[in-house]
């Protein structure tokens, strides 16, 4: 068993980093919304799912069916990421407007928001399974079947670590994810919108008094979080080449675990948590078999919440929860 671990250490590390980056990007959405509204946006998993389909739309419309190289490949990847961002951010903003804002205005209970989110989640899944996939992607009667991305790139080996190949798609995912994180970090820490978000997270009432428009800050938060989930969706699609209407559920829980692991409400925590989760999950799979991968991450979630609910880096957008 220990030999297995030695043999598979590097492939698992690379896979773990790629998955971890995707978890981290989705986790940002949870963590930002939580930081600002103290609300767990349960429907965020569906925002990610829609991101994968938004990205899928690009090769579908362009009719790509053979591997691309060079500038064409870069262009298509960028278009896919943009399409994913657009679809996801749009969904997230609509979600906020329809499913959350009326409740927030009335000061409804958290439970009401939770049920509303579950309802929205079911609605979006079914919408894709019944209408969007059959109609838009022209796959009648196949709404619930896994949908594959046409091969847009060769999985060429870029370089190797200790004799184990590292492939192009894995590098694309990690580089793009880290790039987005840096952009986001700048956005939150350096811009006026970012200052509004941080102010609202720290003390919403004081923020209102200081002239922050809460509604637009909340909308921005959903927009940015949704956009990040869209990037995650596009990257997932590029790297793993398939998606389905139900894909959000598992990724949603994993990403939430990542957010909690890193310290919910903390942007850098999302990155740390996502990568940690991706790595631990893949190392664990070497020992217990990949069937148990999901159990490993749920167990981590439970353990973290029990022993260190503030996560690795702690809650930083606001003071720790009472």
């Amino acid at each position: 068993m220990f030999n297995d671990f030695i043999n598979q250490f590097w492939p698992s590390t690379v896979d773990g980093l790629a998955f971890g980056s995707i978890y981290a990007l989705i986790a940002l959405g949870y963590t930002m919304v939580y930081g600002v509204l103290r609300l767990i946006n349960f429907a965020h998993s569906e925002v990610f799912m829609i991101g994968t389909f938004g990205a899928m739309f690009v090769p579908f419309v362009l009719g790509i069916n053979s591997a691309l190289t060079g500038l064409a490949l870069v262009g298509v990847i960028i278009l896919m990421i943009l399409a994913g961002m657009l679809a996801s951010a749009g969904t997230a903003v609509a979600l906020e407007r329809i499913a959350y804002r009326p409740l927030r205005r009335r000061g409804a209970s958290r439970l009401a928001a939770l049920i509303s989110a579950i309802g929205a989640s079911i609605f979006l899944q079914e919408l894709f399974a019944l209408i969007v996939i059959p109609e838009v992607f022209d796959r009648p009667q196949q709404g619930r079947i896994q949908m594959a991305l046409p091969p847009i790139m060769e999985r060429t080996e870029l370089f190797s670590i200790a004799g184990h190949p590292v492939k192009l798609h894995q590098v694309v995912v990690v580089v793009a994810a880290v790039g987005m994180m840096v952009v986001l970090d700048r956005l939150v820490n350096r811009t006026k919108i970012g200052r509004g978000i941080r102010a609202t997270a720290q003390n919403p009432e004081a923020a209102v008094l200081m002239g922050v428009n809460i509604d637009s800050i909340v909308r921005m938060t959903f927009l940015i979080g949704g956009g990040m989930a869209g990037v995650a969706g596009a990257l997932y699609l590029i790297a793993y080449e398939n998606t389905n209407y139900y894909i959000g559920f598992l990724f949603g829980i994993k990403a939430f675990t990542a957010a909690v692991l890193g310290g919910i409400g903390n942007l850098r925590g999302a990155l740390v948590g996502g990568v940690t989760l991706g790595l631990v999950e893949n190392y664990g799979a070497i020992f217990f078999g990949s069937d148990w991968k999901h159990v490993i991450s749920f167990t981590i979630l439970v353990l973290v919440l029990m022993f260190r609910p503030t996560g690795i880096l702690g809650e930083s957008l606001q003071q720790a929860r009472a």
Binding site: A99, L103, A112, I115, G119, A120, I122, F123, L130
Partner: peptide, 19 residues
């Protein structure tokens, strides 16, 4: 098959109008 779709929408509507 539309029943789950409607179920989801009803849940949201219910929480908005009668939480």
């Amino acid at each position: 098959e539309y029943r789950m779709l409607i179920f989801g929408a009803v849940l949201v509507a219910l929480m908005i109008f009668r939480p």
